[in-house]
Amino acid sequence: MERRTALRIIALGAMTPQLEALGAATHCAMQEGTAWMPADYKLQFFTPAENELVDQLSEIIIPADAHSPGAHAAKVSLFADLMVATSSDAVKAQWRNGLHLFQEAAAKSSPATAIAEVAAHEQHPTSDLERFFIVLKVMTVNGYYTSEIGIHQDLEYIGNTYLDVFPGYPPLV
């Protein structure tokens, strides 16, 4: 997902039709909902080395901590593989190139240092690597916070249910 698309989704979250239009414009296939089974998943786009790199980088972006597991436990790299594998050729090329650039940067120092250097330019990216970091981060956010770990363990989300009375918070005094 492009940075601009991601930002527009934030801005237009209240307006589903635009969201749908964006979805239709930026993604190719639409399929009926089916349960996603990470245990049975086989890589469709990433090489094993690329998958390992995405796994490392996503865990740096959303790490395990005392509160909850991180992106590695949520298998974000497999989610990313599925999304990229079912996207356009342009998106695939962006990921192949972006991961190559990250591999080069990490080889000079470490994945953590590479992330730290590009993240410093997140607000105003100028290089392909800095721009790809934003793509990677959006994918990590999407993958993590739509996983069971992200929703239930990290956010402790308790909605999506059937209530007789709306609870909310106690009213403002």
């Binding site: 639409m30 399929q31 996603w36 079912t86």
Partner: peptide
């Protein structure tokens, strides 16, 4: 309707208009 499905129960986690695709039938899009 897929409204109450959790994202991780859907192939694309509810992205790509997954929950509402059934309302846009045929080639209307």
């Amino acid at each position: 309707f897929l409204s109450h499905k959790w994202p991780y129960e859907l192939q694309f986690r509810g992205l790509r208009n997954e929950k509402q695709a059934m309302f846009y039938q045929g080639d209307v899009r």
